[in-house]
Design a protein around this nucleic acid. Structure first.
Lengths: 237, 237
DNA sequence: ACCTGAACACCGTTCAAGT
DNA sequence: ACCTGAACACCGTTCAAGT
């Protein structure tokens, strides 16, 4: 709680006054992200971190949004593409489990960075690590028997759900008053008159985003099952 | 393109110097939202609109996030809960169509307000209009034969997808250079080597969020079909 | 080319002081 | 109680000027 001023991040990575470069800027951004969160990854703060003025960064980076996107792609390099399923070397675990595994690895990264997940929902990344992930997700589906075009549509929904779940859950734990907020919601929903809101009255606040992990993995399975059961306009399964 | 200063929104609704109130603040916020977008719905701007200082608003509203949430719930009052299906009076159109109809009405509102959709992904609303929508979505599922508890979990995923699709699509059209951005992405994906990215190479950029309406309604059907095919931990269908 | 100081046009939120 | 002026501590981005 003591708000004493923090020292600049990672003095070691910046020995003297290194020349500016896109890579350097992104690296500094990742460092600040890890240490203090995306809110602090601002042009002004980064400039300070790199011993220059904010204007200088605009030579290498178009704007803040582009910078944040680059940061996300950097982190996406850590997604484990070969997890899930039987985990053995011959790689024929159930493709659904593997799909879930990869997406869980993706979610884990976003869980650690709420604000990044939020960003990813609206501004779809397109960096190399992201494309690698997309390729893998399509491959797993096709190996599982999903027609390629449907798999291509499917990857959109899969990533959408995984990203949105991360964006949602993460902000839930973030605000300190999570406990009392939840109590308040529970009470409010339970007090809804059964006459106008029979289901909410009966089911209670558990409706609105309950127990985390279980629900979110159910959500992924819903999408996977949905994909295998829903032909796109061109195919008939 | 001429950036001449805009006059205050809706001079008529604010005849003299009305007393402050939560309702008044939210109403002013909605007016500014409609006229200039959520980015302009700031404490300072609203204070100016209401002829006072920003500090005064904090008597009625905890912070900017809470204000934005209230604005969203206000708009959600316009969701059409009885659309889709056969549209006739006896109301027994297919429940899936009705579900799609209601969610489309929800999406339409979010499409008009990109920034609001973005917000809704991470900070789930809990206002009265939102709860009405949730109740309706559960009811439609249960009428269609989905076990109540599963329907409760399902409504989460349905709203997640609808909201995220709106958040995503809307920001896509927003940036003026949408056309050239899209071309650039297409080229980049097509140029990926077939050796490392066989599927992306073959399928092209259409993978990453193609033709809008068709895809997003497919996404909703995927979730609906997924729900009917995926039992939750407690039930066996 | 690349880099920068300084400025423009904003933010959210708090707090002591007033009514 | 309710309201406010003024301040604190920030933002992104541009642009003319320098090297």
């Amino acid at each position: 709680m003591t708000p004493r001023p923090k020292p600049p991040v990672s003095r070691r990575e910046r020995p003297a006054k290194a020349a500016l470069s896109r890579e350097g800027i992104v690296a500094a951004a990742v460092a600040v992200l890890r240490a203090e969160g995306l809110e602090k990854v601002t042009m002004r703060r980064l400039a300070q971190e790199l011993d220059t003025g904010p204007a200088s960064l605009y030579v290498y980076v178009a704007n803040t949004a582009e910078l944040h996107a680059a940061v996300l792609d950097e982190l996406l390099g850590e997604v484990d593409l070969d997890t899930g399923g039987d985990g053995g070397g011959d790689g024929d675990g159930d493709w659904r489990d593997q799909l879930e595994g990869v997406l869980s690895s993706y979610k884990l990264i976003l869980f650690a960075h709420p604000a990044l997940a939020r960003m990813a929902v609206s501004a779809r990344p397109r960096g190399e690590h992201y494309l690698r992930l997309v390729e893998r997700l399509i491959a797993l589906q096709v190996e599982g028997g999903v027609p390629p075009e449907r798999a291509a549509w499917g990857v959109d929904v899969l990533l959408l759900v995984a990203t949105a779940v991360a964006a949602e859950k993460s902000t839930q734990w973030q605000s300190g008053d999570a406990e009392s907020e939840w109590d308040a919601l529970t009470r409010a929903v339970r007090e809804l008159p059964a006459s106008t809101h029979p289901y909410l009255h009966a089911l209670g606040a558990s409706v609105l985003g309950g127990s985390g992990t279980q629900r979110s993995s159910w959500g992924l399975r819903v999408v996977i099952n949905g994909i295998t059961n829903t032909p796109v306009p061109g195919d008939e399964d």
